[in-house]
Design a protein around this nucleic acid. Structure first.
Lengths: 117, 117
DNA sequence: GCTCTATATCGATGGATGTCAATATCCTCT
DNA sequence: AGAGGATATTGACATCCATCGATATAGAGC
């Protein structure tokens, strides 16, 4: 299951195929990997991940993420959603606040696809 | 030198900073890394890298790259230029033909920035 | 229930990007 | 020099995307 759905947790993408440099990527695999990389390929989203990663328990409240990146609240909310949809962050609601945490291994698994060894 | 120029070989980007999850990225570092990832975040470019990597000596002629990806010659030429400018591929002219090769360590160094360990 | 605060969604907008056809450039060979 | 083939560049176009202000939703506490 879960092969041609367009919404693609990173863990599924990375389970699919050998590293980029080992054998030729199929069009479908290239599409999936590109989608994961696209989610990362934005300076604001990289900073958000970086801030979350540096926080206690690799988890941060959305309320603490808007100010450091210097963008509007809707924009930050949008970026967080992109990262959650891509499988890099998880979202937990606690009371009024939303907490975002690193999904363990998500970054590593996409990194593993890029590496040659 | 070479800190605020906008054209950014990957090797410079990756020399700059510790992994994404170790400490908070500055806006400038996030920008550089995002630019490298953007160059990778396209299915056609991933396939081109993959094909080059699977070729003899990790090098391929442009003439052999147009057909497999199924796009027009100008489009493929454009994608190759993006990858060369980003530092993932190198270009060598031999006679009428242009050969593209993997830049050793380029993919690895960007992967290393994503990984936590 | 009402208010206040936190977060998400909507709609619009400007800028970036992938693609192609047409054309230019460059190299080789006769 | 001229012709032919390989690659790059140009210009146009459609689509995607980051961003914002305005608004909706949802939870907490009175």
């Amino acid at each position: 299951m879960s092969q041609t759905i367009s919404l693609l947790p990173v863990t599924d993408v990375t389970a699919c195929c050998s590293p980029l440099t080992r054998e030729t990527l199929t069009a479908a695999n290239a599409d999936d990997l590109a989608r994961s990389l696209k989610a990362l390929a934005d300076p604001t989203r990289l900073r958000l991940i970086s801030i979350v990663a540096a926080s206690e328990g690799q988890e941060a409240c959305a309320c603490d993420l808007t100010e450091p990146v210097g963008l509007s609240q809707p924009t930050v909310s949008h970026h967080l959603k992109v990262l959650v949809d891509a499988g890099f962050l998880s979202r937990t609601q606690r009371g009024t606040w939303a907490y975002f945490a690193l999904v363990p291994g998500a970054l590593d698994s996409v990194a593993r696809l890029l590496v040659s060894a």
